[in-house]
């Protein structure tokens, strides 16, 4: 059965791209969220196998969202999707419980690889 993914990013372009890449690689995109608040709501409602999480977003940032999602479901698998220059934030997210991270700009094999490893 294909794995169910929730994509969280405030940029439409980024959501479209991640969705495009993952859909072609056999993932099932069950939802998209454009800020941390939506991400937590949709996680609770959809219970996806994996979340890709942007860091800088309005309303609630990605790190707070990671903490809140893990409070709901300590087994949640979250992969941070981050830009270069945000080392400190990535470290904080991983210390908070995110499983891994990918760096923008990324290429298709990289994200598929990272996600597959986290799900294994």
């Amino acid at each position: 059965m294909s794995k169910r993914v929730l994509i969280v990013d405030d940029a439409v372009v980024m959501r479209m791209m991640i969705k495009g890449i993952l859909a072609k690689s056999g993932f099932d995109i069950v939802g998209e969220a454009q800020n941390g608040v939506e991400a937590v709501e949709k996680y609770v409602a959809l219970r996806p196998d994996l979340v890709t999480m942007d860091v800088v977003m309005p309303e609630m940032d990605g790190i707070t969202a990671v903490k809140q999602i893990l409070a709901h479901d300590p087994a949640a698998k979250i992969v941070m999707c981050t830009s270069m220059g945000q080392q400190a934030l990535v470290v904080e997210a991983i210390q908070a419980g995110a499983k891994s991270f990918i760096t923008k700009p990324f290429q298709a094999p990289k994200i598929v690889d990272t996600l597959t490893k986290v799900l294994a």
């Binding site: 454009q34 608040v37 309005p58 940032d61 400190a88 470290v91």
Partner: peptide
């Protein structure tokens, strides 16, 4: 990681989800 605490939390009232 002292740098990690430099982040400011961005909070605002929740908004209705929208689609294009």
């Amino acid at each position: 990681n002292p740098e990690a605490s430099a982040r400011s939390t961005l909070k605002a009232p929740a908004r209705h989800p929208t689609i294009r």
